[in-house]
């Protein structure tokens, strides 16, 4: 239990008569990357803002490194770093000045290593308004981690970043994780969440719809595995050919796509059929359901209900 750095217990928040978050609970351990996913309006931002101390919960218990964000805001900023989705800096402040300014408020000497680490070294004397969106996001991240926080909240950290910057950011996140920093990652990018997160919570209609490791979440769905096949003579396109455990199938250009509940049974039958038709297998791909598939499945069920 001592390893738990962040805990949310029966957290509820309303805006006048609108319920933004309804009694959610989760815990995050030291050095863990915890993904917070959900469609717009699911309650992600409200949850983050209450953890950041920017809003006060109506009920429930929130703790970040033992600190109550609503009541101990000044202590919170020493243990938490935040990269907000919507934040800004004065347009005339330079990269170096912003580091110096915020370090002085954190009561630490300014450290410019991060500027180089985040490829902003050459922009050290550039004003905020002269930076590209990606560079502004990177500066925002540098400011969030300059005081070496125990908990880092990242809200859409890769939005607006190019591929190289994105890879570099992911490397930095892994590095921070290895030093024991706990990271809460709110993102719409399912591939990023799947790749980076140790555990994930999917928020849907102000409640937690699913929680677990990315593997646990993807495995908990309908479990349809995508099998894509192409043969030389297109023998599988003949009508009347059916295979065991196939829930649905479709044709895409030269390929036939099967969605199976039992990979082994379906693939063996497909290969047997190809052999019996004296055809030749050209391409066979098996893809397990991705987090995105599972996310869409969950949101689809949620909206149907």
């Amino acid at each position: 239990m001592d390893n738990i750095v962040l805990s949310v217990e029966n957290f509820r928040k309303t805006y006048q008569s609108v319920v933004a978050v309804d009694g959610i609970s989760f815990q995050v351990q030291r050095g863990e990357i915890f993904g917070l996913l959900g469609p717009n309006g699911a309650g992600k931002t409200t949850t983050l803002e209450c953890l950041e101390g920017l809003r006060t919960p109506d009920s429930g218990k929130l703790r970040v490194a033992g600190i109550d964000p609503a009541k101990q805001f000044s202590q919170l900023r020493d243990v938490m770093g935040v990269q907000l989705q919507t934040s800004g800096l004065p347009e005339n402040i330079t990269v170096e000045e912003s580091i110096r300014l915020f370090c002085s408020y954190h009561k630490i000497p300014p450290s410019y290593d991060l500027i180089d680490r985040l490829d902003l070294g050459q922009k050290r004397h550039a004003q905020y308004q002269e930076l590209s969106t990606g560079q502004q996001r990177r500066l925002s991240l540098a400011l969030a981690i300059t005081h070496k926080p125990k908990v880092l909240l990242l809200d859409e950290p890769t939005a607006g970043l190019d591929v190289a910057s994105r890879v570099s950011l992911h490397e930095l996140m892994r590095e921070l994780k290895s030093t024991g920093t706990t990271i809460i990652l709110a993102t719409h990018d399912m591939a990023e969440a799947e790749e980076m997160s140790d555990r994930i919570a999917i928020l849907l209609e102000v409640k937690i719809a699913a929680t677990g490791t990315p593997l646990e979440i993807t495995a908990s769905g309908a479990g349809l595995t995508k099998i894509t096949v192409r043969t030389q003579n297109n023998c599988l396109k003949q009508s009347g050919l059916t295979f065991p455990a196939v829930a649905q199938q479709s044709i895409k250009e030269e390929y036939i796509v099967y969605f199976s509940t039992n990979i082994g049974a379906t693939v063996s039958a497909i290969i047997a059929a190809i052999d019996s038709q004296a055809d030749t297998l050209i391409d066979l791909r098996i893809e397990r359901p991705s987090l995105e598939d599972r996310f869409l499945e969950i949101t689809k069920i949620g909206s149907a209900q």
Binding site: E52, L54, R77, S87, G88, Y105, L143
Partner: peptide
Amino acid sequence: AARKEGIYRSYRINGV
């Protein structure tokens, strides 16, 4: 303008 552009948000989370 500073409030609208989220500058105060940045200030707040950094302890200004």
